[in-house]
Design a protein around this nucleic acid. Structure first.
Lengths: 140, 140
DNA sequence: AATCTAACTTGCATATTGCAAGTGAACTAT
DNA sequence: ATAGTTCACTTGCAATATGCAAGTTAGATT
């Protein structure tokens, strides 16, 4: 039986507003970048990212993203302390959003990772294909 | 002479982080949606949008977006009380970001504006072309 | 001159964020 | 077996940001 979501009370019915309510903060998209591009899966990996998120905020954002079904959490069977986070299909489909945000900033700001950016420019589909491949196993 | 920006101190050099620092809040992208899709240009138009932004926050976000050169402000020559905001070329190039965020949410959430969404799905280039056309005059 | 309108600003309560330190369960080394 | 370490969080609290209601000011309208 599918679990019924408790009707999210939104400020409006606009799809952009829905995206902004789920992802419009200073950390959520960076966590998703770490998963998509770097393959990070654990709390400590996210903690050590360049932007230095605080641990309480990270815990909150992971819970939120999980509540939106963008990521999923499962305990590591090999190490009972670890929780392994993975992208759900809904999370994987955010790859085009991330791609366009990366390309936009790279075009207009001075940023790093020019080689990754050039690769994204050449083939926008590649990232989403790579992400799908990487997370395919995590969802039977 | 080009105006030199005062080197923005960022949490990291990642282009996604740059985008998130400029646009990662609950209102900025909605203001840009109002400009791109609805053609809004004035403070009061933004104020009256569905999501009901507070006037102090709106004033702050308009200032921020202007400081990033995403929008530009000019006094209305026909009515000296009005300030007319317009998208800069940098702001116009955010259309693909908005498009992907709209399409993602429309795919995964229950949202309105299905006809606009279908149009975006059919032709992703159309919005950016329309936006360019609409704001072409505002930048000589 | 009086009123209205557009674009803000101000004051203040509430909510969110960030930092530093702490906790408890699970692993590892002796 | 026990001591120390690692992992994923919590907690307490100060600093920021947000939201609401009520101004304020310059310019337009009657």
């Amino acid at each position: 039986m599918p679990k019924n979501k408790p009707a999210p009370k939104r400020r409006s019915g606009c799809p952009l507003n829905a995206s902004v309510e789920m992802l419009g903060d200073r950390w959520s998209l960076l966590i998703l970048r770490d998963m998509m591009i770097r393959g990070y899966r654990s709390f400590n990996e996210f903690l050590q990212s360049d932007e230095k998120i605080a641990s309480n905020i990270l815990a909150d954002r992971l819970r939120r993203l999980e509540s939106y079904d963008i990521i999923a959490a499962q305990r590591d069977s090999a190490d009972g302390r670890k929780v392994l986070y993975s992208l759900t299909p809904k999370g994987i489909e955010l790859a085009p959003v991330l791609t366009e945000m990366v390309l936009w900033a790279a075009r207009h700001e001075e940023t790093d990772n020019q080689s990754l950016v050039r690769e994204m420019q050449r083939d926008k589909e590649k990232l989403i294909a790579d992400v799908r491949r990487r997370w395919a196993e995590a969802h039977g």
